[in-house]
C-alpha cells in the first residue's frame, strides 16, 4: 500500500474506496461540507455586485437615477442603449476599438510565432538578453511612453490612425505573445520537428501544417490575451487618437454635458464594453491561468 502511494503519480492507480474516503475527509476537515460554497458565493457576490449595479443603472433613465434610489429599475428602459447604437459618435468608438484590437492581435501573433519557436528550440547568441529585453517592455509603464509615442506617430503622419494604436499596443502584446507561445511550444517534443524534416518537409510547410495545429490552444490563448490587453488599455489609445480612430474608452470620458454627467448612457456604454470579453472568456476559461502565468503552469 505504501509502495503504491509513493510511486503513483496520478489517482488512477489508487483503490477507489480510498480516494473517495480521502475526498470526504478533506472536505470535512475544512469548514464543513458547505464552507467552501459559502466562501465562493460571498466572493462571487462581491465581484458581481458592482457589475449588477452598472447594469441596473444602464436600464434606468437619468431622471430615475438621480430621483429615487432603487435596487432595481422600476421602469426598465433600453433608451440608453438606443442612444448609443444610433449615434455614430458613440458606436464608431466600438468599431474603432475593435479595428485596432484585431489589427494588434494579427500583428502580434504573426511576429511572435516564429520568435517563440526560435526561443523554444534553439540557443543563439544573445538569446537570454533578448528575452529579458522583451520582458522589460511588457513591464514598461505606458505613462512613460505616452508622450514619445504621440510625437513619434505625429512625425510619421500616423497620428489618429488605427495602425498607430495597434503598433503602440504591440509594445506590450508582442512580448506577452512570445512568452505565452514559448511556454506552449516547449511542451511539444522536439522529435516531431526532426521526424518532419526527415520526411522532407520544408520549415515553412512543417510550421504551418504540423506545428501550428499542435499548439492551436496556445495560439488561441495568446490571441485572447492580445485581444484582452489591447481592449482594456486606455492611456495610449487615448493619447494617439483624436477623432477618426477614437476608441470607445475615450468616448466614455466625454459624457459630461451641460446638464451634468449622463449616468444612464455612461453605464450602458460600460455594459457594452464588457460583452466582448464575456463572450470569449468562455472558450479559454481553462487556459486563462496558463496565459497569465506566461505559459508556465
Amino acid at each position: 500500500m505504501t509502495d503504491a502511494t509513493a510511486q503513483a503519480p496520478g489517482a488512477s492507480s489508487l483503490p477507489e474506496d480510498l480516494t473517495a474516503e480521502r475526498n470526504a475527509s478533506r472536505v470535512g476537515r475544512r469548514f464543513g461540507p458547505s464552507g467552501s460554497a459559502v466562501v465562493m458565493v460571498l466572493y462571487l457576490l462581491f465581484l458581481m455586485l458592482p457589475i449588477y449595479w452598472l447594469l441596473n443603472m444602464s436600464l434606468k433613465t437619468n431622471n430615475e437615477i438621480l430621483g429615487a434610489f432603487s435596487l432595481w429599475p422600476r421602469n426598465a428602459t433600453l433608451q440608453n442603449y438606443v442612444t448609443i447604437l444610433t449615434d455614430p459618435s458613440w458606436y464608431m468608438g466600438y468599431v474603432n476599438s475593435l479595428i485596432y484590437v484585431l489589427m494588434n492581435t494579427a500583428i502580434s501573433l504573426t511576429v511572435a510565432l516564429p520568435a517563440a519557436y526560435a526561443f523554444s528550440r534553439y540557443n543563439f547568441m544573445g538569446d537570454k538578453h533578448l528575452f529579458f529585453w522583451l520582458l522589460t517592455n511588457r513591464m514598461a509603464p505606458p505613462a512613460v511612453f505616452a508622450l514619445p509615442f504621440f510625437q513619434l506617430y505625429s512625425s510619421v503622419g500616423l497620428f489618429d490612425t488605427h495602425i498607430a494604436v495597434a503598433l503602440a499596443h504591440a509594445l506590450f502584446n508582442v512580448p506577452l505573445a512570445v512568452w505565452i507561445l514559448e511556454g506552449f511550444m516547449r511542451g511539444v517534443p522536439k522529435e516531431i520537428d526532426e521526424t518532419a524534416y526527415i520526411d522532407g518537409y520544408s520549415f515553412g510547410r512543417f510550421f504551418v501544417k504540423i506545428f501550428m495545429p499542435l499548439i492551436s490552444s496556445g495560439i488561441g490563448v495568446a490571441a485572447f490575451f492580445c485581444f484582452m490587453f489591447s481592449w482594456v488599455e486606455l492611456l495610449l489609445s487615448r493619447t494617439l487618437t483624436s477623432v477618426d480612430a477614437k476608441p470607445i474608452a475615450a468616448t466614455m470620458t466625454r459624457t459630461g454635458g451641460a446638464g451634468g454627467i449622463d449616468w444612464g448612457v455612461l453605464a450602458a456604454a460600460g455594459v457594452l464594453t464588457i460583452i466582448p470579453g464575456a463572450l470569449v472568456v468562455f472558450f479559454v476559461r481553462n487556459y486563462i491561468a496558463k496565459g497569465f502565468a506566461l505559459g508556465r503552469v
Binding site: 465562493m40 462571487l44 465581484l47 458581481m48 455586485l49 458592482p50 457589475i51 449595479w53 452598472l54 443603472m57 437615477i65 438621480l66 434610489f69 435596487l71 484582452m228 481592449w231 482594456v232 488599455e233 486606455l234 470607445i248 474608452a249 466614455m252 470620458t253 449616468w263 455612461l266 453605464a267 460600460g270 464594453t273 464588457i274 470579453g277 464575456a278 472568456v281 468562455f282 476559461r285 481553462n286 486563462i288
Partner: peptide
Amino acid sequence: CLVLMSLPLLIPWNVVGTIWQIFGRVDIGL
C-alpha cells in the same frame, strides 16, 4: 466560477473606474 471570476479582468480599465464611481457615489451608488 472560472468564467465569473475572469470577468473583472476583461473589463476595460476606465470602465472599472466608471463602475466603482457609479457604485460608490453617495447619491446614486449602492
